[in-house]
Simulated scan of single mutants.
Amino acid sequence: MTTEQSPSDPVAAGPEGDLPVVLEAEGLTKHFPIRRRGRAALTGSRRSIQAVDDVTLVLRRGRVTALVGESGSGKSTVARLLAGLYPRTGGDIRLHGESVNVRRGKAFRAYARRVQMIFQDPFASLNPVHTVRYHLTRALKIHGRAGDDLEKSLRELLTRVQMTPPERYLDKFPHELSGGQRQRVAIARALGADPEALLADEPVSMLDVSIRLGVLNLLRDLKERLHLAILYITHDIASARYFADETMVMYAGRMVEGGDSETVTQRPAHPYTRLLIESAPDPARLLPAEPEGPFHVKVPSSGGEPPSLIDPPSGCRFHPRCPVALARCKTDLPPRFDVGDAPGHWAACWLYDGAAG
């Protein structure tokens, strides 16, 4: 792996293209084979769940990239692939431009030191029979960051996630903490590795609404102070607009739209993105009253159900739910088309093909 600046080094201000790429995926694919028993195992072809297909994304230092979609769209699978927890079916994952394919041993530990994951349920991700001290000490020792003064390192970790005074929390068990405090401990444990990228899998969805903002603000502060590259996975496109610099929209295992968060949420190009926004509790705060774009796409909020990923639709996977689907949407998979005037805004939708009439 190439040598890069540590996360604590300053990053010069500049446009997105000038920010160093930490982690990237190209053509990332994951199919889960379906186990068949009895006579079915001896006859017929093997089938699989096509959870992730041809996903490409880039995580840069000092930026948050949101991955948005409804449940079952493949968001969490992408995070686990990037974390090395699942073997990939196809595609490439690169850390600082070098391909990685490690799942165990010293090589995996070296990769995990730079790419850490924060899970959705903080209670499930912490061992209930061990204290906060145990969880953080183990993280520091595994990644060789305990230092000469372990107590000082533990206090610094808890202070970094705004759990002060740290002495109040070190000897508590997970059940003695609130949901927000447990998630802060999980974040502190991830920071114990001194990572360059954080993969946050719906980090606030299990928390009370009243404390979600505090955790998101903590992650934003860590991004700015430590210059972390953060992948923020969520089904709440409103929080993506608030928290993320860039938003990618995922549907049925495939990316359908991407761009800076303000553009994607204010001027959505793909019919599915509009469906997500109109399904939000208060869509008026996000979406203009009149649809924008050359086709004035209007998607009703009752948009049907996601397709089966065992036998997904041909062509665009959204076409069975799309009220403006073209004939070719049912047969041809749309590539990415640049849309609008905002740089980097794209949509995988045939409505934006220059040849479309």
Rank of each mutant, 00 (worst) to 15 (best):
S6D: 12
D9N: 03
L23G: 04
L23I: 09
R37Q: 13
R46Q: 15
S48C: 09
V52H: 01
R61A: 15
R61S: 13
R61Y: 06
T65F: 04
L67W: 10
G72Q: 13
G74W: 03
S76M: 01
T77A: 04
L85A: 07
P87G: 03
R88H: 09
D92V: 15
D92C: 07
V102L: 14
A107H: 09
F108V: 06
A124E: 14
S125K: 11
P128Y: 07
Y134Q: 05
H143R: 10
S153W: 02
L154W: 01
L157R: 03
Y169W: 11
L170V: 07
D171W: 04
P174E: 02
H175F: 15
S178I: 10
G180Q: 01
V185S: 00
V185Y: 00
A188T: 04
L198A: 05
E202L: 08
S205T: 09
L207D: 04
D208H: 06
G214T: 03
L218T: 10
L231N: 08
D236I: 12
A240H: 07
Y251K: 03
E257W: 00
D260P: 08
R274I: 11
E278M: 13
S279E: 05
P281W: 14
A284I: 04
P291L: 08
G293W: 02
G304K: 07
D311F: 13
P313V: 12
S314A: 15
C316A: 13
F318L: 14
R321H: 13
V324P: 03
A325C: 12
A325V: 12
D332Q: 15
P334R: 02
P335D: 12
P343V: 08
C349I: 08
D353H: 05
A355Q: 14
G357Y: 01
